[in-house]
């Protein structure tokens, strides 16, 4: 039954809450025991806290929503989620997003080199290479599967 998939997604949501809680606790404890000696490290711990809080809030809200939403509505949501036209729309949108991010990384790399920001330039070029490698690996994987 399709509704079983919703129950399965609850497990992922519980996992999300647990990961979020770990990240949140790490950020808070790290800040309290002053793991951060510099401003940017303090900001990093704040990012862990923020990310953790977001995961916990998202997971909790979704879990409550799944619990109190009618089965019919959940089933309709799953139909919409797995609907083949929606899946194709999502894939097309992801493709365009990926092309846009590739162009953005390339532009950033040129801008950073022009500004003599070596480290950000290498990060932008590295991100481009990671995109190429991920594309190659996923292409090989799906070529073998299909």
């Amino acid at each position: 039954m399709m509704y079983c998939k919703s129950k399965k997604s609850n497990r992922y949501l519980i996992g999300l809450v647990i990961v979020g809680a770990i990240s949140l606790v790490f950020g808070i404890i790290g800040h309290k025991v002053s793991l951060a000696s510099t401003g940017n490290e303090d900001m990093l711990l704040g990012m862990f806290s923020g990310l953790g809080a977001t995961f916990v809030a998202t997971g909790t809200i979704r879990l409550f929503r799944n619990k109190f939403t009618s089965k019919e509505k959940l089933k309709q949501e799953e139909i919409d989620l797995k609907d083949e036209r929606n899946v194709q729309i999502l894939r097309a949108a992801y493709t365009i997003t990926n092309v846009a991010s590739s162009i953005l990384f390339a532009l950033l790399a040129f801008v950073f080199v022009w500004l003599n920001y070596r480290t950000p330039a290498f990060i932008a070029i590295g991100a481009l290479w990671i995109q190429v490698i991920v594309f190659f690996i996923s292409y090989c994987y799906f070529s073998k599967k299909m």
């Binding site: 919409d80 609907d83 083949e84 929606n86």
Partner: peptide, 20 residues
């Protein structure tokens, strides 16, 4: 078990269905 929009798009000729 598809969305209403999918049926509409099929009928309008905007979308080609999978073989399934």
């Amino acid at each position: 078990e598809v969305s209403r929009q999918t049926i509409g798009s099929l009928e309008n000729g905007r979308y080609n269905p999978s073989i399934l």
